[in-house]
Amino acid sequence: MAEILALDDVQDATILIGKILKKKGHTVHSFTEEDDAIAHAKANKVDLAILDIKLKKMSGIEVLSLLKEVQPAMKAIMLTGYPTVETAREAISLGADEYCVKPIDRDELEEKVEKVLKSRGNKNAMSV
């Protein structure tokens, strides 16, 4: 089972992600503040980060960049309510494994998380 970090400015969204993935046996650490999430990643092992692109102070892309500095092997799924070519291109260049558009279906979320976690050590799998 994996250590998962979820960061979204909407608290209900982080709670939901936690509920869905805990049912799958993962440990989920939910955050609405960027600094808290970064501090957690600096102190603990994180297998997967699920990040919303629109946050309170920074963008999810910037947070991804900082998390990758402390946890280079960490996997990442980017969530957005407003998909654009620019954000998708930047997320991929910073090592994001998935780029999902909200509202994401529960089954779709579970499926993507499993897929990304399985691909640990296999870096050529990325889908939008």
Partner: peptide, 12 residues
Amino acid sequence: HEINSPLFAALG
């Protein structure tokens, strides 16, 4: 975009 986050929470 503003609707999608609460919608995601509500739907899930």
